[in-house]
Write a protein that binds this DNA or RNA. Sequence first.
DNA 1: GATGAATGAGTGTTCATTCAT
DNA 2: GATGAATGAACACTCATTCAT
Lengths: 205, 205, 205, 205
Amino acid sequence: MEELSTQDTLELKKATIIQAAMEVFAKNGYAKGSIGDIAAKAEIGKATMYYYFDSKEAVFMEAVKLAYRRFFEVIENQVASLEGFEDRFRALVRIPIRYIYDHLPILFEARNSFPAAYVAELEALQEKGRQRMRDNLHRLFLEGMAENKIDDRFGFEALSNVVHDWMMMAELNLGVQEKQIIMQKLEKEQDLLIELVLYGILKRG
Amino acid sequence: MEELSTQDTLELKKATIIQAAMEVFAKNGYAKGSIGDIAAKAEIGKATMYYYFDSKEAVFMEAVKLAYRRFFEVIENQVASLEGFEDRFRALVRIPIRYIYDHLPILFEARNSFPAAYVAELEALQEKGRQRMRDNLHRLFLEGMAENKIDDRFGFEALSNVVHDWMMMAELNLGVQEKQIIMQKLEKEQDLLIELVLYGILKRG
Amino acid sequence: MEELSTQDTLELKKATIIQAAMEVFAKNGYAKGSIGDIAAKAEIGKATMYYYFDSKEAVFMEAVKLAYRRFFEVIENQVASLEGFEDRFRALVRIPIRYIYDHLPILFEARNSFPAAYVAELEALQEKGRQRMRDNLHRLFLEGMAENKIDDRFGFEALSNVVHDWMMMAELNLGVQEKQIIMQKLEKEQDLLIELVLYGILKRG
Amino acid sequence: MEELSTQDTLELKKATIIQAAMEVFAKNGYAKGSIGDIAAKAEIGKATMYYYFDSKEAVFMEAVKLAYRRFFEVIENQVASLEGFEDRFRALVRIPIRYIYDHLPILFEARNSFPAAYVAELEALQEKGRQRMRDNLHRLFLEGMAENKIDDRFGFEALSNVVHDWMMMAELNLGVQEKQIIMQKLEKEQDLLIELVLYGILKRG
DNA sequence: GATGAATGAGTGTTCATTCAT
DNA sequence: GATGAATGAACACTCATTCAT
């Protein structure tokens, strides 16, 4: 076994802190998630936070990045493990909603009290996330067409955008406590929405 | 013209404060929206806030109520001024997204730092709002069926729920600053989504 | 029946307020007994307090005066209703301690946060109270000697002082400012009291 | 000479703060003795108070403990330096009254505005103090009997209690809640004290 | 590297007091 | 006479941040 390099040790510590930060911010939101809480959860001194990061904003940014990374790990692995357009489409809709619900939404609440520089970075992150999600969707639609399951009535580019934003809907119920109940309700509705998109509601000719 | 009664003057002042509160909370979120800021915007002393309200939470609750009231005023008037299922459906989808985007979302961010009693009231408010929105949708669907424009494939009850939550999607983009750009983008996508729901994406036959 | 004169009505109202003040201060102490509480208990507006009194201190002073007045009413009536030196002596010792315990002590806690003028008045009141108590005791001792129940071993003047201060000892812990003077006085009396107790428990001959 | 350990430095600082707190509370009482005043007197920032203590109540508790500690240091050293029952008895009576007068009494005024937990701790402290005082007295009486200076007419146990409470009578006026219980106890003791005084001044034979 | 100690700036809240009516 | 409305000044407490070690 090799020893960890200094560089690695530093990165490891940083990762521990970011993990703690993600949990604290997810639970309390940005304003109420304190540096002290994070330090305590990471089992380090409060001042040490400032050895690794420049400011609360910086820590928050890293926590958001981590949340995104995790999000795509989970979703892409899941989709890859399934077969066929319809199942994959369902997965691509259902999984994000739970994950976003658990981790992402409160994280975004910060924008208001952020210096402009960080807001820009935050939005860049978000845009990158959207792009990646759209790519996933686009790829899936192309597969669906290749399987001759769907047509391109609306243009897949546009469609990817729309479905992406629609999936993000979860964020509307920020931080309610009875998660299980609400999630069940949301997921049930999600099923219906999937059918809806697949078939539409207007009568045909 | 009669003079305003004392009662009216008081209510007017209260309304001014609540209006200020709504603006401040919408801009800064609950945690960072300070009583001092609200007082300043309402052009009264900080202590005066406590003559009219018991606590920051109470002020916030009133701001939320005001946001809801305005929301339904706007949307219901708009819908009433239009004719035909499709136009009304479009309106019922487009207007909320802008309004919610402007006023409601940040307001809900408070839940984490709220005493249980207020969280309950907040959720009751939210549920009441949803119900009213669902009623509007349900009524519209019935009209659409009466006009022989749509069928009841999914059950209007369920459909109302789904579309409601889907419309509320706006909340996912909490408080970004370049509102105009994003709103334009969102509304364009919204149009597509409307088509989507109306027609679906799967091939027929 | 005559109507109450304006003067009387005013005095009646004042009395109601002072009664309320006495209760509030007795329960909460000076610092925590608020003008608002008193006004509420007297069922008048808070601002009305300032029609009848100049300041919180003034209200407090009147409450203290009332407490003293009641104190002597109770004790003197009680003593008058009894016969014989020993019973009267017991009453004169027992009743004050309960009354002081219930009403007076917290009232005196105010001295620290009081303007000098009021402190002086407060102390004058206290001295007047002491004098009256001493008079009661002195009169009683003379009666006791007339009944041939006691001798004048210590001098009744001094004895009245001692017993009075011993009963009132409660009051001493109240942060008066001229500590040196009062302490000297108290300690001199203390000496006498010590002799008293020693002669009570020391073996004779 | 060795340098002070970090631990010691911290304790020293804490002690400085508590000393300042004791002085401020003694002068202004609990309600009017502000954290800001204490910090100023200890020459630290206001926020630093909260690095060392959890709350104003906690600071106050420590100030009370310090006052007690000092109290017994002073009194027990004094008594130990004297010879013979009578001198020691005088000291045991004289010193407390001055010390209590200077430091303890105002400190107890806090009870009204204290959370239950702290009131309990306060009363426990007080009870511990009383016990220690009673022990001192009891020991002294036994010495007095050994010296054949006094007899046990009233029982030393009871006598210790009485003299203690008599000295401490100051404390009784402090708004304790269980008035009935305490008053009954006090009045029973009062009876004994009355007998004591009567047997001191009544003619014999 | 890591942190204990320290704090300035700010927060929500209370309250005695004023004043126009 | 009486008071509703308004507020300045203060208070306990929090927290992101700094700095000497």
